[in-house]
């Protein structure tokens, strides 16, 4: 099976003035379709940087990153944006819903940047509603994020991540701002999505959450320390 994500000696440096910060120092791994991977490590280990490279929001400074067979490092901004739009779904720690949009509008936002005409609007709205139903928010279509609990907001965010039917869902500390009960629910939801065949990469520093994955990559000081399946 061809890996959906493959990294080969990926490095990332930040240059600010004369100070060069090496965040990633040669990271190599690949992810097959349908996997549920946790990336763990202490703060400052380079987890988030790795996630945003995986998420095509940053270019690697060196090395090669292929997403679904496409070498990301050579793509211009417009093509990269399209890749994000079509192949990736993001879930953030602080949910990052647009506060002025209703739940439904937030879920529909990725479709603004996809190809296709507005004629499909009805279909798209139906799909967004289905996704909100899936994450258990069938009664909350027209609520603003401010009217929802943290767990509910994260559910909206997950529905939004699923909207364009992406290859991979990237979750950056999805439970970081939630209480333990809501955390359990969100992780369960992600696991459920994975069981339906969705590839999920989860960045977390919470071992409870990390252990829920089927594969655990530990990263420390910009290098992979361990990469092992977990029970």
């Amino acid at each position: 099976m061809m890996p959906v994500i493959s990294l080969n000696q990926v490095e990332k440096r930040y240059v600010s003035g004369s100070v060069i910060t090496e965040v990633l120092k040669g990271v190599t791994f690949s992810v097959l379709p349908g996997e549920l991977v946790s990336i763990m490590g202490p703060s400052g280990a380079g987890k988030s940087t790795l996630l945003y490279i995986l998420g095509c929001l940053a270019y690697p400074s060196a090395g090669q990153y292929k997403l679904d067979g496409v070498d990301v490092g050579t793509l211009p901004d417009v093509a990269l944006s399209r890749l994000r739009n079509e192949k990736l779904g993001f879930v953030f720690q602080s949910f990052h819903l647009i506060p002025q949009y209703t739940a439904l509008e937030n879920v529909l936002l990725p479709t603004v940047y996809s190809k296709g005409s507005r004629k499909e609007k009805k279909q798209l709205t139906d799909r967004a509603k289905e996704l909100l139903d899936l994450v258990g928010l069938s009664e909350r279509y027209h609520y603003l994020p401010g009217e929802l609990s943290g767990g509910q907001r994260q559910r909206v965010a997950i529905a939004r991540a699923l909207m364009n039917n992406p290859e991979v869902i990237l979750a950056d500390e999805p439970t970081g701002n939630l209480d333990s009960r809501q955390s359990v629910e969100i992780v369960a939801l992600l696991r459920e999505l994975n069981e339906r065949g969705r590839t999920i990469i989860l960045v977390t520093h919470d071992p409870e959450v990390g252990r829920q994955a089927r594969r655990l990559i530990t990263i420390r000081d910009g290098v992979i320390q361990s990469d092992e399946p977990c029970s």
Binding site: L57, S81, R84, H96, L97, I98, R160, N164
Partner: peptide, 16 residues
């Protein structure tokens, strides 16, 4: 800014 960041993550190019 955050809104712009979110939109970029969801697939908006700089041009968009």
């Amino acid at each position: 800014r955050v809104e712009i960041g979110i939109k970029r993550a969801l697939g908006a190019s700089r041009r968009a």
